[in-house]
Design a protein around this nucleic acid. Sequence first.
DNA 1: GCAATAGTTCCATTATTCGGAACAAAATTT
DNA 2: AAATTTTGTTCCGAATAATGGAACTATTGC
Lengths: 245, 245
Amino acid sequence: MALLDVVALADGPMRFTDILSLADQPRGTLHRQLSHLVEEGLLEIDRDGRYLIGLRLLTLASRSWARNEFRAVAEPHLHRLQEETSETVHLGILRGAEVIYLDKVEGRQSVRMYSQIGNASPAYCTGVGKAALSALGDPELAARVAALEFRRYTEHTLRNAAELLSDISAIRARGYAFDLEEHESGICCVAAPIRSDDGHMLAGVSVTGPAYRVTPQKLQAWAPLTVAAADSIMMDMRNRMGPKR
Amino acid sequence: MALLDVVALADGPMRFTDILSLADQPRGTLHRQLSHLVEEGLLEIDRDGRYLIGLRLLTLASRSWARNEFRAVAEPHLHRLQEETSETVHLGILRGAEVIYLDKVEGRQSVRMYSQIGNASPAYCTGVGKAALSALGDPELAARVAALEFRRYTEHTLRNAAELLSDISAIRARGYAFDLEEHESGICCVAAPIRSDDGHMLAGVSVTGPAYRVTPQKLQAWAPLTVAAADSIMMDMRNRMGPKR
DNA sequence: GCAATAGTTCCATTATTCGGAACAAAATTT
DNA sequence: AAATTTTGTTCCGAATAATGGAACTATTGC
């Protein structure tokens, strides 16, 4: 898995030696491990002998994505929210201190459509992430925040734990989060938290758009819609899950 | 990997015992293997103790997809073809006797947008698949066809190797393939083959639409556009790859 | 409350991986 | 073009980790 990560994180196909320098393992060992991964279809070798991620992962991921219950339940609500706002809607799920985007619904041009799905971003500088964090209990929140390193993606990115915790208490008070160009310059969003009954799974929905089009007033106006969508998703999940447990 | 496949192929989360009955392994062994997969994030356990595919795969797949060179090169051509025809355009790559869809560009409604990406379908009953097969040399083609089992997805699905080979020689003669409701009832397409210089990688582009809207005449009219798109992709790949090798 | 089923842990045996070294093939330099 | 360095591949005894039967615990259904 460490090798898979190395290859997946690279910008392009990697030669044997490139991998060798990143994974600190003897050459013989590395060679055998790579061969096994290739056998399994997790890696592939191009005609220049360079390694890249195999298609098998795409197939596996696609199947599990399509059958993901939470995603399926949320889908109609995401579409409705998209139509109400005519901006891009995201569904993200909290994993540790990261948000993984599970779905995305765009308006007209579906350029770069898959770009976000599956993408992992730091929770502290995304709307969905902060919304999800706000649903954590204080001890758990403190633990996750303690482990964070704050990187400044833009000039508006929160700088430290204090700023984050203060923002989170504001989010708790009003019930929704803003991201005002904190992760990407020129991109703003409103987001609302989704929590499962047992509090085990935390997620969020957001409405995102370019700052020139999406004014603070608009974000404010969309907040109730976003919260409503999040609540509907929670309700549907509860109904779906209820009977079993 | 066998376990991952079992879990990924299931319709929903699987209990320990469900997996036990499919994977023939002693309980102790299976339990430990599942635990390792969970540790690595390849599997996850829901609150009912059932196993499902982990998000890590989605993240890995997403990264490699976004950086896939072939996909990136093809993308603008797919968009152009989509605009020219205003129907859905697919890019698929041949793996053995299967086609794996690498990209999809839709018109207005982007419902089920990711549904196809990463999906593997039999080559013999899809436009892209037959187009790609037609670019194989005869010995290689014979070998791959010999291993096929022909399942009848619709009443138009090709029934056996003879029908397939005959269709393929027609495809070779005219340079493009049709799928007339052979995989899914009510769905037709035209497809053109893409071959890399060394013939190592085979792929295809297709224009797909519902039979009531997409008449044979239209398919015929789109054929040259599809072939042109495939050729442009081939050219771009050649230029991109050329300098290096 | 009790049986049956489901899930988890343990540990001696067994099988696999490890990694150094030798070997082979390219790429680079002289 | 030959020599040298860099890169990629194979081999095999030693070290390590996986195996799977059995014992144990927890959960479910009657």
